[in-house]
Design a protein around this nucleic acid. Structure first.
Lengths: 220, 220
DNA sequence: GAAATAGTGTCTCTTAGACACTATTTC
DNA sequence: GAAATAGTGTCTAAGAGACACTATTTC
């Protein structure tokens, strides 16, 4: 084992859950150790850069470009880290569908991950929860898509994040009311069926936060 | 400065935002350093216990009993920590209204905090966001109350968390539909006005998660 | 009585979700 | 033509929020 990957004392690791839509499923990038075990990509915390920057660099090294969205997740220090870190600082990142990956890394469906060390398993399992927590206030679904996308693409992204099917007509109505997208002049034909118009993310209003607990709100 | 509070190398601190409703406002417990500066309560990370346990012990030491609810928040390592920690692991805790506090600690309204070090200021400001993120899936509002409470108490707790007024009749309708509470035989008169019935938190069903983005959901 | 707080019944207007279409492509 | 996907108009049942009350206390 090289010196660079040796575990420091009181080591803090930056662990990354990098998500993308691949083959119509939400997938996570998993790497392999020298020993052949599956692990989430991670880096050791360094005093010279902030953890978020380390996570961003790690993601960039993996997919050849900056992740489209990235956020810190709550610390998970229970259970064992595959490389023995005492503390894990988990980050969840999102990228578009066309990302290339570095050798040794492979996408795995979030609901069918390979066997991971206990802590990485816990971090990966809570990643979807983190995405769901932010999808109302950040354009998480849009960052899973290419810059232009069809409404069916977008609906599928929301369905994967929410874990349930959405109603087409109603989805589009709500989308229109939210002023989040604008049409382009392009259309995309997939072969079968009518070609779909392409849209881009272009929020026109301050994003309206539709709160969760729907205890009726008073006016104003 | 004592050896115990000396900053270790590569130090990781556990920073606590302890929230309670005091004087009809959401307030945070703030302590003072030996130098007289206001700081959020914190402890140095220890290898023998998990950060969550350290946060729980810290909260217990401050209010004389275990916090009613506690969760990890995303790491904040940007900006300067008041005691020089390189990395902060923030926790947000909630307690009922009758909590006593240790000497040197005082409650301050979340929207009118004293001057804090940059990192603590950022952590405190994101605490409300953390509470809001969890209030749909965890009984955060209930943990801010005594074991039995009036419906007006509960509505006020939700109003403080949401940052806006709620409609009384509608709030109670939604509450009934959620099967989260049950009435007790007790009533509480505050002096003025009709006495209010006391309720307790007693979720009868699996908590229904009302999602935020209301892109119309399909049946089933 | 007035003032204050607790608690309810009804009405209306919005909208989520269902349903039923039409439109445009490939085969 | 059939099959597949894109996109829309209408209907209905549910419910958010408004309004207007009644009920019970202190003064």
């Amino acid at each position: 084992m090289s010196r660079a990957t040796q575990r420091p004392r009181g080591a803090v690791s930056i662990d990354l859950v990098l998500c993308a839509i691949q083959a119509d499923r939400l997938q996570v990038l998993v790497t392999k150790t020298a020993g052949g075990d599956s692990v989430l990509p991670f880096a050791w915390n360094r005093p010279d850069i902030v953890p978020e920057q380390a996570a961003r660099q790690l993601a960039t090294a993996l997919i050849g470009r900056s992740p489209a969205w990235l956020t810190a997740a709550p610390v998970a220090a229970f259970k064992r880290h595959p490389a023995g870190a005492d503390l894990s600082v988990p980050f969840v990142a999102v990228t578009g569908p066309q990302a290339q990956t570095v050798v040794g890394a492979a996408w795995h469906p979030l609901d069918a991950l390979p066997v991971l060390a206990p802590r990485h398993k816990a971090i990966a399992q809570s990643a979807l929860e983190t995405l769901m927590l932010h999808m109302d206030t950040a354009p998480v679904a849009f960052r899973l898509l290419a810059p232009t996308f069809t409404l069916s693409d977008l609906q599928r992204a929301y369905e994967l994040l929410l874990g349930r099917r959405l109603h087409k007509a109603s989805f589009r109505r709500a989308l229109q009311a939210a002023y989040l997208i604008e049409p382009t002049d392009e259309w995309r034909g997939e072969g079968r069926g009518r070609p779909a118009q392409l849209f881009r993310y272009a929020p026109r209003k301050r994003r309206v936060v539709h709160r969760g607990v729907r205890f009726d709100l008073i006016g104003h």
